[in-house]
Amino acid sequence: MNKLSLFVIALLTWLSLTWTLNYQDVLAGIAISLSITFLLGDIYVINPRKIFSPKRMFWFLYSLLVFSVYCIKANFIIAYRVLHPGLLISPGIVKVKTEMMSPLGRAFLANYITLTPGTLTVDIEGEYLYIHWIYVMTEDVERATGIIAGRFESILKRVFE
């Protein structure tokens, strides 16, 4: 079951990459997907019940929607700060606590934080994230958590846990 889902994902990627249904291309795709499955099937642990459940997929798409709104907003803020003649920045590195447990969820949280307004993940150490903030509003851990990670954490928890 685990290996079958990896095979399906690899074959779908191959088909969309070549974008023909010529039988030679499809046969080559099946051969390559099989070899990938037997070589890497033990490394990539995919839980099929998690990845194909419609509820998690819905929350994932919803998180993508929220994320794209924040991403476009972030770019206008950065553009304003860059073009302003007085350089409106007061940077610093703050500490943020997260309650996410799964490693994939943490990776997604760090990537979302990097692409949203004024924040950049520097390191993950245990349950703390160190975040470079271009305009530090507060140095307190609890309040910084509410401002930075609170935007996505509740949604991402429903996807990955």
């Binding site: 991403c71 972030a74 770019n75 950065i78 553009a79 700060r81 860059v82 350089l87 920045i89 940077p91 990097t114 692409l115 004024g118 924040t119 950049l120 520097v122 470079h132 271009i134």
Partner: peptide, 15 residues
């Protein structure tokens, strides 16, 4: 334009 490595990384990566 921005002054140090981390700020430059922020602006350039996002935009």
């Amino acid at each position: 334009r921005l002054p140090d490595v981390y700020n430059r990384l922020q602006a350039s990566t996002k935009c």
